[in-house]
C-alpha cells in the first residue's frame, strides 16, 4: 500500500529528478554545451598549437578544454534542473478517463446483424 502511494505521489517524482536525473531541458542544454565546448577547445588548441609550432601546447590546451567541459557537463548542476516536469494530480486522470475503443465493438455488432 505504502509503495503504491510513493509511486503515484508527484512530489516524490520531482524529488527523484532533482537528486539523480536532469530534466528534459537540462539534458538538451548539457549535450549542446558539451559539443560546443569541446569543438571550441579543439579549434583553439589547433590554432594556438600551429601558431606557436608546439604540439605539446596544442595537447595541453585540448586537455584543459576536456577537463573544463567535464566539470561543466558531467555533474548534475542545479541550473540544469530549472524546468521540472509538472505531473498532474491523480484526480485529474479520473476526471478525464481514457477514450474507449468503440469502433471495433460497433463493427462486430454490425457484422452480426
Amino acid at each position: 500500500m505504502s509503495v503504491k502511494n510513493v509511486r503515484s505521489d508527484p512530489s516524490s517524482v520531482k524529488l527523484g529528478f532533482t537528486r539523480f536525473e536532469m530534466d528534459w531541458q537540462g539534458q538538451k542544454l548539457v549535450e549542446q554545451l558539451m559539443q560546443i565546448l569541446l569543438v571550441i577547445s579543439g579549434v583553439v588548441a589547433v590554432v594556438v598549437g600551429y601558431a606557436t609550432e608546439s604540439f605539446r601546447t596544442m595537447m595541453l590546451i585540448y586537455a584543459g578544454g576536456v577537463v573544463l567541459t567535464t566539470l561543466i557537463t558531467v555533474p548534475n548542476w542545479p541550473f540544469y534542473n530549472l524546468h521540472h516536469l509538472k505531473w498532474l494530480d491523480p484526480s485529474e486522470a479520473e476526471k478525464h478517463p481514457k477514450p474507449q475503443v468503440v469502433v471495433a465493438s460497433s463493427k462486430k455488432k454490425f457484422s452480426k446483424k
Binding site: 536525473e21 536532469m22 539534458q27 548539457v30 558539451m34 585540448y62 558531467v74
Partner: peptide, 22 residues
C-alpha cells in the same frame, strides 16, 4: 544524458573523436 554515467560516456566519446580530428 539523464545520468552521470551517460554524460561521462558521451563526453569521453566526443572528446576522443575530436582528438582524432585534431
Amino acid at each position: 544524458m539523464h545520468s552521470f554515467g551517460y554524460r561521462a560516456n558521451a563526453l569521453l566519446t566526443f572528446a576522443v573523436t575530436a582528438l582524432a580530428f585534431i
